[in-house]
Computed example of a mutant assay.
Amino acid sequence: MTNARDPRIDFFRGLALIFIFWDHVPDNPFAQLTVRNFGFSDAAEIFVFLAGYAAVLAYGRVAERDGMLVACTRILRRVWVLYVVHIFLLTLLMGIVFVANNHVESRDMIQIMGLEYFVKYPQQALADELLLRFKPNLTDPLPLYILLLLALPLILPWLLRRAHYVVGLSLALYLMVPLFGWNLSAYEGGVWYFNPVAWQLLFVLGGVCAVRSRNAVVQPTRPLSRQPLFIAAATYVVLAGLITLSWKWPAFHEALMPKLLNDVLYPISKTDLAPARLLHFLALAYCTAKLLPRSQALLNNWPAQQTCRMGRYSLEVFCLGVLLAPMADMLNALAGDTWPMQVCTALAGLGLMMMLAGWLEWNRRLGLSARALAV
């Protein structure tokens, strides 16, 4: 595979992490600016798609350089690291929520974070946590990623050589959800909030795009206005945006949407990655790829560089964002949920995420310098 790193991948991973943090702080004014307000999909689709892209790009290079056995060994080692991080993250999150709940009187933080099960049945909850069945609010993406990465050794050889077969099988598996209701079981008879049977399709499509990128050849193209696929995708993105905005005014939405379209479109399930969400994300990703050139020129500014840096350390920044969300909610509640405090906590959380990414980058460069001196 090519060694060139597409800076857009890091940028949009970082942007998704910012959106995830802002979306999970209740009544955060900056949450009105995230992608979920302008279409059917949200930052979760970005996160999973780019996780597949980055994983296949990284481990595909290892497979081609050192062999498939080495690549699969590294994948499984990464899965173990993610599993340990998941357990550690849940422990920290529960500690923060329990402390916050003792200081906040205006709302039940334990109920908001989905920790009632742990309070009622601590022993069973711990067992379910180890089995990835118990996932409090905000933590669902990490178990999904663990499961998808665990399956990567099975499909990576085929992705590198016969990607269209993998896409066909992945699509067939996705169709099992509406046909037979497939999902994995969770605690108390529930199911996974992010249904892996459905969301695996986005992960696979991200991996396919990574494989295709190695053979990408820059060729003269027709103007976008003369590309039917781009026009169709852009039209869908605009229409989805208008429908989503109309949700803020129910009377207008009811007048805008014909009953037949309502029956076809709703419900737009996030758990099962409804076709409307999937198509919206794919259309949005396609339009973005066409409109935003691969050149780093547009990303050579301080905000974009900080966002790219967060994207390069997505696991660490994601975990910090999960811990910061209930802390921000607690501070907002203690301050009476005033608008200035909500703005301050949202910006402070973003600043801490940027500082963590900066520290990790500095630490990485320090380690490279030390190894260079040792040689």
Rank of each mutant, 00 (worst) to 15 (best):
N102L: 14
L130D: 02
C209I: 14
R133A: 13
A125L: 03
V104M: 11
V99L: 12
D140C: 11
N102K: 15
L148Y: 07
L130M: 15
E116I: 04
A100Y: 11
K135P: 00
Q123K: 10
Y117Q: 00
W192Q: 11
L152H: 11
G207F: 07
Y145Q: 15
V191C: 09
L82A: 00
V99A: 10
Y117T: 09
S185V: 15
I87W: 08
M176P: 03
L171K: 03
V177D: 08
L159V: 05
G207L: 04
H86K: 05
L126V: 11
W199A: 04
Y145T: 07
R133H: 06
S185C: 13
L144I: 05
I87C: 00
I146Y: 01
L90Y: 04
V85R: 07
A198I: 09
H86Q: 11
I96E: 04
M113K: 07
M176L: 14
Y117A: 09
V166L: 09
F180D: 01
R162C: 11
A125E: 13
V79L: 05
L126I: 09
E116C: 01
F88L: 14
T91P: 03
S106C: 08
L89I: 03
L132P: 11
L154I: 07
L142R: 05
S106G: 00
L156F: 09
E116Y: 09
F118A: 15
Y145E: 11
V104H: 03
T139W: 06
Y174A: 05
L138A: 08
G114Q: 06
N102Y: 10
E105Y: 00
G190A: 10
K135C: 11
L202A: 14
Y193E: 07
K120R: 07
V84H: 13
L156Q: 03
H86I: 06
P122W: 13
W158Y: 12
D140W: 06
K120G: 01
